[in-house]
Simulated scan of single mutants.
Amino acid sequence: MKAIILALAVFGVAYVSSQGEPWCRCAMFVSSPHAEWMVYELPEVPITDCESHNQCKNRCTKEFNEMTNEMDLWSTVSNATVGQYICEDLYSHFIFFIHNSYVHAYYEMCGGPWEYTGLDSQQMLCCDRGEHKHCIS
């Protein structure tokens, strides 16, 4: 029995090692009482290995802050607001309305679970059929 467990452990290490270069994904999510939606994925950031959680988290945090102007949904990037890009993406996935929801920043490393960076949007997100709107409480 010990030989089987040892063989499986060696196989598991060999499999993970053969998967190639380490990678780190950065994405923004909106939570609701019934679902969690990825609303925007930023470009992957380079990391040195699949054990570098702080490296992945820090690089994603830097990317979120640079690409969204510190998670400001009303900041303009390439002629549209950060929130508009998010609302358009949600609309393309048949999510037509979002009201009073904060956007949260997460990172994923080498196929592991999504982990919270500690960043949230400065404002709440409100989308009406793909259009970024000001939220009314």
Results as ranks from 00 to 15, higher is better:
R25H: 13
E44S: 03
Y116K: 07
Q122F: 09
E44M: 04
A3F: 03
E88A: 01
K62F: 10
P46L: 05
A35M: 08
P113W: 11
Y40T: 10
T76R: 10
V82Y: 03
V13G: 02
F97L: 09
H99V: 06
E21N: 08
H134L: 11
H93P: 01
P43G: 04
E36Q: 14
G130P: 00
I95N: 07
E63G: 02
H132N: 11
Y106A: 05
L90E: 04
S78E: 14
F97P: 00
T76K: 09
I136H: 12
H93E: 13
T81C: 02
F64H: 05
H53C: 03
L73G: 05
C110L: 06
E115I: 11
F94L: 13
A35H: 12
C56L: 01
Q123P: 01
M28D: 04
N65S: 11
A80Q: 15
F94V: 06
Y102L: 09
T61A: 09
E88Q: 15
F29A: 09
V16I: 15
W74S: 13
P33M: 09
M109G: 03
E51S: 11
F11A: 15
A80R: 13
G12E: 12
S17W: 08
M38R: 13
T61W: 06
M109D: 00
S18D: 02
I98P: 00
K2G: 15
C110W: 07
E36K: 10
S92H: 03
H93I: 08
I5P: 01
L90S: 02
M124L: 06
N79L: 14
W23K: 02
C24T: 05
Q123G: 01
A80V: 14
E63M: 14
A35F: 11
E70D: 14
A3M: 02
P43M: 03
Y85V: 01
E36W: 08
I4D: 12
E115Q: 14
T61V: 12
H99S: 14
W74M: 07
M67P: 00
N54A: 10
N69E: 09
C26M: 07
M1P: 08
E108T: 06
N79M: 13
D72Q: 05
M109I: 10
C135V: 07
S101V: 11
P22G: 07
G83N: 05
M1F: 11
E131S: 11
S137P: 12
E44Y: 06
G12R: 04
P22V: 07
W23C: 00
L119G: 07
D128G: 03
V39R: 09
E66G: 02
S137F: 15
N54D: 14
S52H: 08
R129P: 00
E63D: 13
A9W: 11
F94G: 07
W114T: 14
E131N: 12
F96S: 11
H34W: 10
C127D: 06
S78Q: 05
V77F: 03
K2W: 05
V16R: 13
